[in-house]
Simulated assay, not measured.
Amino acid sequence: MNIALIGYGKMGHMIEEIALQRGHSVVLKINIDNTEDFTAEKMAAADVAIEFTAPESAFANVRRCLDFGVPVVSGSTGWNQHLPEAKDYCLQKGGAFLHASNFSIGVNIFFQVNKLLARLMASQPGYEVALKEVHHTQKLDSPSGTAVTLAEQVLQQIDRKKAWVNRPAENDQELAILSERIDPAPGTHHVKYSSEVDDIEIIHTAHSRKGFALGAVLAAEFLAGKKGVFTMDDVLHL
């Protein structure tokens, strides 16, 4: 499989390493220094693109891949407000698009556990729920996209919570996400339910970026040759 990397920072380098180990070729690497190479002619050599850039550029990059007829896997976070538009654009173009706030296999299983726990706790008003995420200081968005996904899953199940906030909660309707930036920290996410008598907490801790990179390559392998909008649930059959 021929892969175009849109974004060639730390994640891009790790994705390249994993892709090569799995027998794929990286035919194009786009970063801030060679944006002029992000053309239809050069993208034509790619079976799929993997996009890891900044929140302000992700949507335009995804659209460009779709314009060029190249399936695109996007791991950029912090641009959720444009995701519905990106999905609609993909369908209009007859293309293929997969976005995930986190490509780690473990995190996607963690998402399923989070949804189940939230559903069980929805009828237990004696428990207060809060989230915490810890990442390295180079993390571009706060809260993390993974934390936002976890929070939105909780909000879908627990009616007494109306919105998440990136600070301590000031009333019972707010769901707090507390963000910490510490080096080195690839990523840790906590979801904690607390009552007067006990606590229930689920935690996912990443040891390196390798799990994220592997998941992105697995997503690219899944997406190549397909049409439509997909998620990691499709890739992992969750």
Score class of each variant (00 low, 15 high):
G75R: 08
E36I: 06
Y127S: 00
S104R: 05
L236Q: 12
S142N: 10
A60V: 12
A130I: 01
L28I: 08
H204T: 01
H99M: 00
E85L: 07
L178N: 12
C65P: 11
A96C: 05
E41K: 15
I182T: 14
I105L: 13
H190I: 01
A130P: 07
A54Q: 14
I158H: 08
I105E: 14
A45M: 11
E201A: 00
A122E: 00
Q138E: 04
L150E: 00
I203V: 15
V70N: 06
I6T: 09
N166F: 09
F68G: 00
M121T: 02
L178G: 02
V229L: 07
P55K: 07
Q156A: 14
D233F: 13
A19S: 10
E36R: 15
A96F: 07
G23H: 14
H13Q: 15
K87H: 13
Q81Y: 15
A185F: 07
I50E: 02
F59A: 03
N108L: 03
K132T: 10
E152K: 14
S57N: 08
F38K: 10
S123G: 13
N61H: 15
F38Q: 04
I50R: 12
H237G: 03
G211D: 11
A4F: 13
F68A: 02
M121L: 08
K93W: 14
V134T: 12
R167F: 07
H13T: 12
K115G: 07
H189D: 05
K226I: 00
Q112G: 05
F52I: 07
Q124N: 08
G106D: 09
G187S: 07
Q173W: 04
A44K: 11
I3S: 10
H82K: 12
L120T: 12
K93N: 10
A19W: 11
G7N: 03
Q173C: 01
Q173F: 02
L223T: 13
D141F: 09
G78I: 03
G126H: 06
A216W: 13
T53R: 03
G106S: 09
